[in-house]
């Protein structure tokens, strides 16, 4: 009481958002600045495994060195950022859409629909996500769209629970009753009045989920079940550097650091979003 209200957007959170923005920008523009085609394998013998800050035999300079096929690691890391960020974003947003639909539907309809949907969610929550991911990926051919679909299919349960709780709390709110008594159709009340007020925690969970999805994708790629080479993702770049860890540790270093930075920024952003929202709720 009497304490100044926490600012809606904290400094750390703004910094995290800026960082993510820069990362996306670098991923979009970076590869365009590359001297030659970043996926092309040219003179392997002259250019392979150049250490960071080194020059290859033909005089090209590589800030982060090259991999075993002579491809520039900086360019490939930025190229991989496109794939990894897109997979993470699409995977978690799709999961959020499913979660919001299931959670809101369960709370709004109630009764056996609610009980069924929530027991399905609880069941999925009880299985370790990685095991579910592995099984589902084994079902289809591994690749870009498979990974996104599987991330969405295994990531919606937490958000469904959050949204359900919010919608249940809002069902008897004054403005919802008002909308109903004015004769608005049930679905319109849900979409126009309840959902906009119920999605706060879901937004936070989705932000955190992006980081988690990027991590999951990299894990699958490391096991050879994610995005397939020659397309670059951070996970398959690390996997490619695995047996070079003695002779050329920089191959696995750069994509790993990029991955850590991304997940950290998502966590920071999500935490920042959740704290003022939580304190406002009290």
């Amino acid at each position: 009481m009497g304490r100044p209200e926490a600012p809606l957007v904290t400094r750390a959170q703004r910094a995290a958002a800026c960082g993510l923005g820069l990362l996306v920008l670098a991923a979009l523009l970076g590869p365009l600045l590359a001297a030659d085609d970043p996926t092309a394998i040219t003179d392997v013998v002259a250019r392979r495994l150049v250490p960071p800050f080194g020059r290859d035999a033909s005089g090209g300079w590589h800030l982060l060195g090259t991999d075993r096929f002579g491809r520039d690691i900086l360019v490939r890391t930025l190229l991989a950022a496109r794939v990894s960020l897109l997979v993470g974003l699409l995977g978690s947003v799709l999961a959020a859409v499913i979660g919001v639909c299931v959670g809101a539907g369960a709370a709004w309809l109630g009764g056996w629909v609610d009980r069924t949907l929530m027991s399905v969610a609880d069941t999925f929550l009880a299985i370790p996500r990685l095991i579910l991911l592995l099984l589902c990926v084994a079902l289809w051919a591994p690749g870009f769209s498979t990974v996104i679909a599987v991330l969405a299919a295994t990531g919606w349960m937490g958000i469904a629970r959050l949204v359900r709780a919010e919608v249940l709390a809002l069902r008897s709110a004054g403005f919802v009753e008002a909308s109903r008594s004015l004769g608005a159709p049930s679905l319109r009340t849900l979409a126009a009045h309840v959902l906009p007020n119920a999605t706060g925690p879901a937004v936070v969970a989705t932000t955190l989920g992006v980081g988690n999805a990027v991590l999951m994708e990299s894990g699958l790629a490391f096991l050879g079940l994610g995005v397939q080479p020659p397309a670059a993702s951070w996970g398959n770049m690390i996997a490619g550097g695995r047996d070079l860890i003695v002779t050329a540790p920089w191959v696995a270093l750069a994509p790993g650091l990029a991955l850590i930075l991304t997940v950290m920024l998502c966590t920071e952003l999500g935490d920042g979003l959740s704290s003022p929202a939580a304190s406002r709720g009290r």
């Binding site: 991590l215 990299s218 894990g219 996970g235 690390i238 696995a252 850590i260 997940v263 920071e268």
Partner: peptide, 13 residues
Amino acid sequence: ITVYAAPTFWLSL
């Protein structure tokens, strides 16, 4: 936050 953000397999390597 840093350790939590790092993939397990990358930390192992």
